[in-house]
Computed example of a mutant assay.
Amino acid sequence: MIHFLIELPTWLLIRTSGILSYLTLFVGMAIGIAYSFPQFKGHRKGQLLRWHTHANLTGMGFALLHTVLLIIDTFMPFDWAEILIPFSAQNNPVLTGLGTIAMYGLLLVLFTTDIRNKLKRKVWLALHMLSYPIFALSMLHGIFLGTDSKQGWAAAMYIATAIILVGLTLVRFQMSSRKRQVKVGHTKPL
Rank of each mutant, 00 (worst) to 15 (best):
M1L: 11
I2M: 10
H3T: 12
L5A: 02
I6T: 13
L8S: 04
L8H: 03
P9D: 01
P9T: 00
L12T: 15
L13F: 13
L13D: 06
L13P: 07
I14L: 06
I14Y: 04
R15T: 14
G18M: 08
I19F: 08
I19N: 10
L20Y: 12
L20G: 08
Y22W: 11
I31N: 06
G32Q: 00
I33H: 02
S36W: 05
P38K: 06
Q39E: 13
Q39A: 14
H43W: 11
K45P: 04
L48Q: 04
T53N: 10
H54N: 12
A55R: 00
L57V: 13
T58A: 13
G59M: 01
L64W: 10
L65T: 13
H66D: 01
T67N: 03
V68Y: 08
V68I: 14
I71C: 08
I72W: 04
F78Y: 09
D79V: 07
I83S: 09
I83M: 15
L84S: 02
A89T: 04
A89Y: 01
Q90Y: 12
Q90I: 11
N91C: 00
N91S: 11
P93I: 02
L95H: 05
L98Q: 04
L98W: 05
G99H: 09
G99M: 10
T100D: 09
T100G: 09
Y104R: 08
G105T: 07
L107T: 10
L107Q: 06
L108R: 01
L108Q: 02
T112K: 08
T113H: 01
R116T: 02
N117W: 07
N117T: 09
K118H: 15
K118F: 14
L119R: 02
K120G: 12
K122R: 13
L125V: 11
A126I: 05
H128D: 01
I134P: 00
F135I: 05
L137I: 06
S138R: 02
L140A: 15
I143P: 01
L145D: 10
L145S: 13
T147Q: 13
D148E: 11
S149K: 04
G152C: 00
A156W: 12
M157Q: 11
M157L: 15
A160D: 05
T161M: 09
T161R: 04
A162S: 14
I163P: 04
I163T: 12
I164V: 14
I164C: 03
L165C: 08
V166M: 07
V166T: 08
L168F: 12
L168Y: 07
L170M: 13
V171C: 04
R172E: 09
F173W: 12
S176M: 14
S176W: 12
S177A: 12
K179L: 10
K179D: 10
R180L: 12
Q181R: 15
V184I: 15
K188T: 12
P189L: 07
L190C: 01
